Simulated assay, not measured.
Amino acid sequence: MKITEHNVNGVVYLSADGFEAAGGVVHGFSTRLGGVSQGIYATLNLSMNRGDDPDHVRENYRRFCAAIGAGSERIVCSSQVHGDTVRTVTAADLGVGLDQPEPWQADGLVTDIPGVTLTVFSADCLPILLYDPVRRVVGAVHAGWRGTALGIVTRAVERMSQCYGCQRMDILAAIGPGISKCCFETHEDVPNAMTEAMGAAALSFIQVLPTGKFRVDLKGLNARRLEAAGLDPEHIAVAEDCTCCLPEKYWSHRYTHGERGSQAAMIALA
């Protein structure tokens, strides 16, 4: 599978061609292009809690959802806390408005309810979308370095299998734009967390620098976790774009020192 870029009425977003080929689902990874927000939030900010004008954010949601073909009235998101909790979204979870505080903490969401738009937010952390076209189940995951070490994407695959009977070889996965190895320079706490969690399998995704710091490939680590969870490597697409390298196209928490809006990744069963 590959990640492809689209421009619909000025809204630039990314998608996985394998999801589109399978049919029955709408999805997309936003950029910061195509909205109405201003200043540090220009232009397609999709976060309601970073100080942007709420009316601008609502219009940004309308534009992005229209571009990818999703329903903005049934969006479900959560309070992301860099953990490994995956919530199964049911009909009882619907109806929380974008202006309302998220009712629970989770970094992964899964559902089999058509029309429910699962949403995760990012600005360097990885947004990861999952789709089983056979059992008709979707998932959305937020994976920063802590979530990667904890195995949040593995937890999501397990939840899809346990709750909905998904066969892992049927699941498609798309790892969206996030900070890449070129820009993710860290101290030893990050590589130590990866090797403690994944053992020798993590080593090829960690580069030791002459300064004593490290560069870590979060995209590669999550792709490896997906393969270890039972997915077909041909069913995993990885976005090449680095959010920190492309500040005009994406928000990067690291590049802006936290003065930013947020991207969103959305997926819904059609």
Rank of each mutant, 00 (worst) to 15 (best):
N9Q: 15
V11M: 05
V11T: 08
V12P: 07
Y13V: 01
L14A: 14
F19C: 12
E20C: 06
A21E: 15
G23F: 02
H27L: 02
F29A: 07
R32D: 05
S37V: 04
Q38I: 07
Y41T: 10
Y41G: 11
A42M: 05
T43R: 04
N45K: 07
S47W: 00
R58D: 11
R58P: 00
G69C: 07
R74T: 15
H82G: 00
A91I: 10
A91K: 13
D93C: 08
L94M: 12
G95T: 06
D99E: 14
P103Q: 10
P103M: 12
G108K: 06
D112H: 06
D112R: 13
I113W: 07
L118I: 06
S122A: 12
A123E: 10
A123T: 15
I128A: 02
L129E: 04
L130D: 02
D132P: 03
R135D: 01
R135T: 11
R136D: 12
V137D: 09
V141H: 06
G144C: 09
W145P: 02
W145M: 03
G151L: 11
V157Q: 00
M160I: 14
M169G: 15
D170L: 01
I171Q: 06
I175C: 01
S180E: 02
K181V: 14
C183E: 14
E196R: 15
A197V: 07
A197F: 09
A200F: 01
A202E: 06
L203Y: 11
Q207M: 11
P210K: 08
T211M: 08
D217L: 01
N222G: 05
L226D: 03
E227D: 02
E234N: 08
V238G: 03
V238M: 07
C244S: 13
C244T: 14
E248P: 02
H253C: 09
R254Y: 10
T256R: 13
H257M: 12
R260F: 00
R260D: 00
S262G: 02
A264P: 01
A265R: 03
L269T: 01
A270R: 10
A270M: 04
A270G: 08
